[in-house]
């Protein structure tokens, strides 16, 4: 489309887009919170994967909080005792680096402060289903997970990057972590639903930013993963590797047998066959 505009038009369009962008990021920390924080944190709605951020400013110094938001890994691996405590509270789940600049972090803290004072709970997943999931929920979740049912907004199925002890031969993808126990890791239905609403890690967020999961899909997936956590055993990656190798070997052998059958009458030289047949005739 852009190439149909002449340079002047493109310049105007570009300027407008930049202006809009700056409006969004300049004035909407609420939006950023929703995109990047809400999957793990609430403000006053209780603990999800990460701690409730209500009145966080009273628990730690603002400087420390800014540093942590900008680069959580540095803080954690730096051996900071408070950071270590946070990690152990969230059962080992480490907050990912979210590419938030210190200026934005300041704004976010201001926003969190405002919301804490206003008193109405922010984030969390009020809609998380609390009744027991039925077998059909679990089955639908499984189909969504392995991609038999396409995700409504066109994101790729979970199985392309994750395993959850569901595919008998090859297992799921090895790119992301195994999800058999993710239900426990992320703190049950609440945590998992929140995480799936807006996945925040850089890889997940880039995949799901414009192709978010629907509420119904999230419920089904949570049902499936809850079931996995109860019944499934984590896949042993070496088994999948071995299976992969064996499948490749089998495929190669099959292909060779097929080629040999298809081209069994191919030209293989004249002289040796001539001598062999003459010898055979001579012996008879």
């Amino acid at each position: 489309m852009g190439e149909h505009f002449n340079t002047g038009h493109s310049f105007i369009v570009l300027s407008l887009a930049l202006l809009f962008q700056s409006l969004v990021y300049g004035q909407e920390p609420a939006q950023i919170f929703k995109e990047k924080c809400a999957s793990c944190h609430s403000i006053g709605a209780g603990r999800l994967v990460g701690p409730d951020l209500k009145d966080v400013a009273s628990r730690q110094k603002r400087e420390w909080l800014v540093e942590f938001i900008v680069d959580p890994k540095k803080k954690i691996s730096g051996g900071d005792p408070y950071a270590q405590k946070l990690v152990s509270e969230s059962r080992g789940v480490i907050m990912p680096s979210l590419n938030i600049e210190s200026k934005t972090a300041e704004k976010l803290l201001d926003y969190i402060g405002e919301q804490s004072r206003s008193g109405s709970p922010q984030g969390g997943v009020g809609s998380a289903v609390m009744k027991p999931f039925s077998g059909s929920d679990v089955e639908r979740g499984r189909l969504l997970f392995i991609g038999a049912i396409t995700l409504a907004n066109g994101a790729s199925a979970c199985v392309s990057c994750h395993g959850a002890a569901q595919a008998p031969l090859l297992g799921g993808g090895q790119l992301g972590p195994d999800l058999t126990r993710v239900f426990e890791r992320l703190g049950g239905r609440q945590g998992l639903s929140a995480w799936l609403t807006a996945p925040a890690t850089p890889t997940m967020s880039s995949v799901f930013k414009n192709r978010g999961l629907t509420e119904e899909e999230i419920n089904s997936l949570v049902a499936y993963l809850e079931d996995r956590a109860k019944t499934g055993r984590e896949e042993d990656p070496s088994v999948a590797t071995l299976n992969f190798f064996l499948l490749g070997l089998g495929g190669t052998v099959t292909a060779l047998v097929l080629f040999e059958t298809a081209w069994r009458k191919r030209f293989r030289g004249v002289r040796r066959a001539l001598v062999l047949s003459a010898k055979k005739n001579g012996e008879e």
Binding site: R266, F267, R268, G269, V270, R271, R272
Partner: peptide
């Protein structure tokens, strides 16, 4: 080439 004489030929 399927019809090439081999070295043995």
């Amino acid at each position: 080439h399927p019809n090439m004489p081999t070295m043995d030929d």
